[in-house]
Design a protein around this nucleic acid. Structure first.
Lengths: 163, 163
DNA sequence: CATGGATTGTTGAGATGTCAACAATTGGTT
DNA sequence: AACCAATTGTTGACATCTCAACAATCCATG
């Protein structure tokens, strides 16, 4: 996610504002680290996500199902699946009973690549948060979940009056 | 930041992995909320950041200085400043003593717009984290800062051996 | 069983970011 | 004074994501 949010200059310093800035900065750093990590296998993070989601789906998923799981627009899946298919990591199977859609499945090659990636992947994730105790990690996840839900239901104090 | 990270399917559930996923999801939600927020004034988040950074700089900043503060490539500033300048929110002044660079300054119009945006901006931020006590917000910021620093110094257990 | 509203994957335009290369300019070193 | 390396803003190629529009297909309803 090439999101650019990480302003360095603290304008007003309230603890909640600080936390929000740190949230954006931390996510940016994690995302960049993940891009560097997957680059070892010439994968983008989204390409990896597609493979990872397909791992436990022997019958495959349609592109629309993939787009819902990955929280992205379904038009992206056209290109993502194209790229993975051209590398032989994934295959489009005809969907029985629906000629509009495909069922995207991992190939043996795709499974093999995933088996190589996953151990260092989880290892790196644990290392990135190793300084947090398990209970503190749980609290972090809880707080972040609340922030996310609050952000999705934006408090609109003054919808359009003083714009 | 159009970063796509938010996988919905929990594959392995360790508290630290959960926290990391929630981090990416929360940042995505916050970023999208901010895009919707600034859209009221037809600004992108990055455009707002430029204005906000210039607020306390009566002598202006060069585009390279802006790019360092905003943590983005300096080539982006060409377009961002172009857009803001064409709306009269910002002006490129000649930099005394360096004919290569500009000093970008807020216009009166830019100051006026910023004064309209900032109150609801801080209000919305406080609302998004209102459920966190101040001490808990401080702890959240601390934890996130550590995650960011850890992510920037990636633990490389096995650099290239089993790729 | 016909027909019209949904859904599927694809395409193309647009937004936002990265990076490499470029000319103009600066400034330190001989 | 002359030169060479570094810096500045700009451009263009590329990557990634969004959205609207489209033809093909499905399906519920009359």
């Amino acid at each position: 996610m090439t999101r650019h949010c990480a302003v360095e200059a603290p304008i007003v310093t309230s603890p909640r504002y600080e936390a929000l800035l740190e949230l954006l900065r931390a996510a940016d750093a994690v995302w960049n680290a993940s891009r560097a990590f997957f680059a070892r296998w010439e994968l983008s993070p989204s390409q990896f996500n597609v493979l990872n989601v397909l791992r436990d789906q022997p019958r495959g998923l349609t592109q629309t199902e993939l787009s819902q799981t990955l929280v992205m627009h379904r038009s992206n899946l056209t290109g993502l699946v194209d790229q993975l298919e051209s590398r032989g990591l994934v295959r489009r199977r005809e969907a029985p009973g629906d000629r509009r859609s495909w069922r995207v499945v991992l190939t043996a090659e795709g499974h093999r690549l995933l088996r190589a990636i996953l151990p260092p992947y989880f290892e790196q994730i644990e290392a990135a948060l190793a300084h947090l105790s398990l209970s503190r990690a749980r609290r972090l996840a809880t707080d972040l979940r609340r922030v996310r839900k609050q952000a999705l239901n934006p408090h609109r104090p003054d919808p359009l009056s003083r714009a």
